[in-house]
Design a protein around this nucleic acid. Structure first.
Lengths: 109, 109
DNA sequence: ACAAAACGTAACCCTCTACGTTACATTGTG
DNA sequence: CACAATGTAACGTAGAGGGTTACGTTTTGT
């Protein structure tokens, strides 16, 4: 698992560029297909909203993809944000490896 | 991507059974290591709380794992809950495949 | 060019989740 | 038995997600 250097692509951008645009589906129509408000979809498309599990299920049905495809995009995005936003997590002291892996290569006793 | 038949293992159970118990670390001590309240960790352990991106980063530092390991467990759990909880997403009509994949194997015209 | 449709956004409201603190009863253990 | 660790409930705060309404701008079709 490589560390992410730059901001991962937002799910909304994928949705827009790889699905809506190529298929010539408007945001309004897509919102109707998904059974959500135009507002909610607009937020996602413009990267001010996020993919919830429920939304991932809706997208997976509409586009014949897996729900995880969408949730992974969102997960990576959220993770990147958390890395940048807070510093508290960096204060967590790693548990010493010899405690995590007692008798790895050495023979004890 | 296989469909999940039964409830995925909750991240809290993994944390408890695969880390805390084997390492003999108490919830109280672990909460201190992570820099969070005992309350919050207790909720996670007892499957009444969830792994947020920030929490995943803390766990990844403590145990030398990837943040995604924890977030994936949570993602699968949330997804399963969403599948069971609501039915609305099932009402989304799949976009016809011939629209999704215009000229796949057939020649148009 | 002009009217209609599609968009982006802001303001509000409601609901739910994450976290912390405080408090209390229960369980485990030296 | 006394103390530490736990599980939980009750509160309060903050923030996210989703809906509705409303308004101004941009696109698009005729």
């Amino acid at each position: 698992m490589r560390k992410m250097i730059r901001q991962p692509t937002h799910p909304g951008k994928i949705l827009k560029e790889d699905y809506l645009v190529p298929l010539s589906i408007t945001i309004k129509d897509m919102a109707e297909i998904l059974g959500i408000s135009r507002k909610t979809l607009s937020k996602i498309i413009n990267e001010r909203g996020s993919i919830t599990p429920d939304m991932a299920l809706r997208l997976s049905r509409a586009f014949d993809t897996s729900p995880s495809f969408w949730l992974n995009l969102q997960k990576n995005f959220h993770l990147w944000i958390a890395e940048q936003t807070s510093n508290e997590w960096q204060k967590v002291k790693p548990i010493p490896k010899h405690i995590l892996h007692p008798n790895s290569t050495l023979i004890s006793e």
